[in-house]
Design a protein around this nucleic acid. Structure first.
Lengths: 152, 152
DNA sequence: TAACATAAGTGGTTAATAGTGGGTTAAAAT
DNA sequence: ATTTTAACCCACTATTAACCACTTATGTTA
């Protein structure tokens, strides 16, 4: 079964003196009643933070369990993906506290860019994202290959 | 299954001080009852905006969900496609608000050209479209290639 | 074809929501 | 016991969305 979440869009918000970040209303509205206010935040593979609604996270965990720890890649990935996973709630204003370890990892200072990517939400330092945009130009060949699989 | 939408025609409308654009009645009438008033607007490949009825977008989304974020190409592709996608409703007058990021991207000032292209609607700055019309003359060879796939 | 009726396009005002900032109290950690 | 952290509450401002109103175009009927 595929995800019930379809986060999209980009937003520029700010982090306050208490490390609180607001979740953009269009994204917040998608949190189901059951998962209300609860989600998991962890390190992204890129230098950003990933937010999953709690029941999405449970699906991810099921998939992660399939990975054998005999592979070094798997071990490293699992370790880094799980050790920084925090269960978080947002307050009555729709904000959450970004854990210090993720403030450091993402190098977020004042401004925050928030991007909806289907079943997860990415939290970026805007300056860093700009750099990534420039350097991560995916070569045409990769896109050509993708185009054979995705028809948009 | 092919699309239920067959948007056609060109219209010249205007954007108002609140960045509202009217959807031409002939196009608006095609929005089904279920999708009433809801659609997705995003960056086109050219310097225009693309509008998809929400259920057209869901077809695209289903394909995007197949892509694993463990692949870097996929991550960049997903992020860059989804970050500019806005879920939008039009008001009781049949207008919608063009997000600021797309106002910038399309360089739309006052006049707006709206074109129906089968399953999507394109939103252009008329001046820009004129330039593209002149420079984008498709060479004969490309048409030859197309002819192998499309029978018109 | 003239008059009327209806729909379409445009403009503005008001009410509701969203984003941000800060303070107070309760819980937790040192 | 003291300091730090986290939850909760209140408040202000800016933005957005809902509502109302007017003008122009289109179409219909006498």
């Amino acid at each position: 079964m595929s995800s019930q979440y379809t986060f999209t869009g980009q937003f520029t918000f700010s982090i306050d003196s208490k490390n609180r970040i607001n979740i953009p209303a269009p994204l917040r509205k998608q949190f189901s009643v059951k998962d209300k206010k609860t989600f998991v935040i962890t390190r992204g593979i890129d230098q950003c933070a990933w937010i999953y609604p709690i029941n999405e996270w449970e699906i991810i965990q099921t998939e992660l369990k399939q990975l054998s720890s005999l592979s070094k890649t798997n071990r490293v990935f699992l370790r880094n993906h799980l050790r920084h996973a925090n269960i978080i709630k947002f307050d009555s204003q729709g904000r959450f506290v970004l854990p210090q370890s993720l403030v450091d990892y993402t190098t977020i200072k004042k401004d925050v860019t928030i991007i909806g990517v289907l079943n997860k939400i990415e939290i970026w330092n805007p300056n860093l994202l700009r750099k990534v945009d420039q350097s991560d130009e995916v070569d045409d060949q990769s896109y050509e290959q993708l185009s054979e699989r995705v028809n948009i």
